[in-house]
């Protein structure tokens, strides 16, 4: 298993992701998007940052770059794909996952620690946790409000595709524990397959023990269990 971390012009969490994965003994390499995926990729991470200056909409340009066609193909073949922050925006823009991440309700960039409730523990990305667990993790985004039409959201919820919701430290979700105004406090969803997931918060920033909490390790360990 070697996770290919795709670097777009403006990615800035790629090296953090590499270090976090290596700390977990998961091999990782940074791949420049114009070079394309390696043959037979075994894992793909779309890191955070500001690809293409986030012009038009966050993730819109990167989602339509040639390497994303390769990523969609690999994802359809069952290769684990994780999108974080800008990577989550790219994931939704490219159709890997449903919905859209758009301007925060506050209309501001927000950088803070939040709590997430684990909504199911039988996906690779959440297998390290128990359903109902509360994890502490940072967000750093201006466009993280999950938006989707109500009927489609109901279908996603029926299909158990929501894997993380914003909550308080006791796991209660509601308008007061929703940092960006996401519909139904959605912070992370899976795609058609459980091996594809996106989330706005940054697990790679809460993985190395020397920088604080390590609640994000379980998400990244998903590459091994996928």
């Amino acid at each position: 298993m070697t996770v290919s971390i795709i670097r777009f012009g403006g990615s800035n969490c790629d090296r953090d992701a590499e270090r976090a994965l290596e700390h977990l003994d998961i091999d990782a390499e940074i791949v420049w998007h114009e070079d394309g995926l390696p043959e037979d990729p075994s894992g793909i991470m779309l890191p955070g940052g500001f690809s293409y200056g986030d012009y038009l909409r966050a993730g819109a340009m990167a989602a339509r770059s040639p390497i994303m066609a390769e990523v969609r193909e690999a994802a359809a073949d069952g290769v684990p794909v994780l999108g974080v922050c800008n990577g989550a925006q790219i994931g939704c823009e490219s159709g890997l996952t449903e919905g859209a991440f758009t301007t925060n309700e506050s209309a501001r960039f927000q950088c803070e620690h939040v709590y997430l409730r684990v909504e199911r523990d039988d996906t690779p990305w959440t297998a390290a946790y128990e359903e109902g667990d509360v994890i502490e993790i940072p967000i750093a985004h201006g466009e993280g409000r999950y938006e989707i039409d109500d009927d489609r959201l109901a279908e996603l919820e029926d299909d158990d595709r929501v894997i993380f919701r914003y909550c308080d430290e006791n796991g209660e979700t509601g308008p007061d524990t929703n940092p960006n105004g996401s519909k139904h406090n959605v912070a992370g969803v899976i795609g058609d397959r459980e091996t594809v997931a996106v989330l706005m918060p940054h697990p790679e920033r809460v993985t190395l023990p020397d920088v604080g909490p390590t609640d994000g390790q379980g998400v990244l360990q998903g590459f091994e269990s996928a």
């Binding site: 301007t103 925060n104 506050s106 938006e147």
Partner: peptide
Amino acid sequence: LKHGVLDPEAET
């Protein structure tokens, strides 16, 4: 934006 989708920039 589609009708009903919150637009924080327009509100501001």
